[in-house]
Design a protein around this nucleic acid. Structure first.
Lengths: 154, 154
DNA sequence: TGGATTAGTTCGTGGCCCGAACCAGGTGGC
DNA sequence: GCCACCTGGTTCGGGCCACGAACTAATCCA
């Protein structure tokens, strides 16, 4: 508001456009691994550890019927598997297959590589600042762990 | 890398998660106006001025067949209209109908309101910094004008 | 034991995205 | 003028995605 003109991009527009950018990069990377964006996201969530359908739905913010389908399709690719929960015969634990785990690692690494390059016009200090500010926004808004933090892996 | 532990979120994770966040907010806002995320995005692009199908495809990064369908469905809602280009009988200009324009204004304003609140944990200086850094990332990566900059409107 | 709750699946509908095939209007070479 | 070529868009078929409603089966609890 303080800045003079239409030259300056507000925080809202910056957020929306950077979102568009990351979406595009993410979807493109997924595609090159034979995945959809949603399947890639599923793999990245499951890298941390297996999840029940319930939790998974909360993390991905999907209705249970939507998630059921996503897991079906990803399982059909052999990347993910439903295991029965011994302590509750209704429940199911969704986890990566060995092949899914391998693919997830690759996809995750490649995606990181590409997204890492997006702020290549910033110097180290600026990147740190950006990371810290965005991280606070993410934390304040309780965004679920849709993308691993390094060293978080089980 | 300097920071000690898995406490710190890297710029990549911060970008991916904030993207997830904005996606969610955007889609939710759209839904409340009877729109899909893509339809909302289309309206927001067209707020600036009408577009030909070709340019529009580049801006939204959609294959022409995808765009054709999106415009169809949005036109069926009465929000958008195909006008023939007098200088080229093959070409088409897609623009907002009066109703579409009204809805676009409302949706745009509401979306801004919501996204504006995401960084409410930051003080004014921090918000400016975030805006400036993200804006540079957006510019460096030549993100098309998928969301208006204020005062850019025709 | 039997009713409520919980975890997931199935089904139907509609939107989204793509590539391939197609069509009509323009354009350039001859 | 004509024909080959290009270009702007649409159509079509297929698969993914998201949702709510209805359903099934296991668990919980009074």
């Amino acid at each position: 508001m303080a800045k003079a003109v239409g030259e300056q991009m507000g925080v809202v527009t910056a957020l929306v456009r950077s979102t568009f950018l990351v979406n595009t990069v993410y979807a493109e990377a997924a595609r090159e691994y034979g995945l959809t964006q949603q399947q890639g996201q599923l793999l990245c969530v499951l890298m941390a550890h297996p999840y029940g359908m319930g939790e998974l739905g909360e993390v991905l913010r999907l209705a249970k019927s939507s998630l059921s389908g996503l897991v079906d399709r990803t399982a059909r690719l052999g990347l993910v598997r439903r295991e029965s929960d011994p302590s509750d015969n209704r429940a199911v634990r969704v986890g990566l297959t060995p092949e899914g785990s391998r693919l997830a690692d690759e996809f995750y690494a490649e995606t990181c590589r590409r997204i890492e390059q997006l702020p290549s016009g910033l110097d180290d200090t600026e990147r740190d600042t950006l990371a810290e500010l965005l991280a606070r926004v993410v934390r304040d808004n309780e965004v679920p762990p849709v993308f691993m933090v390094l060293n978080e892996q089980g």
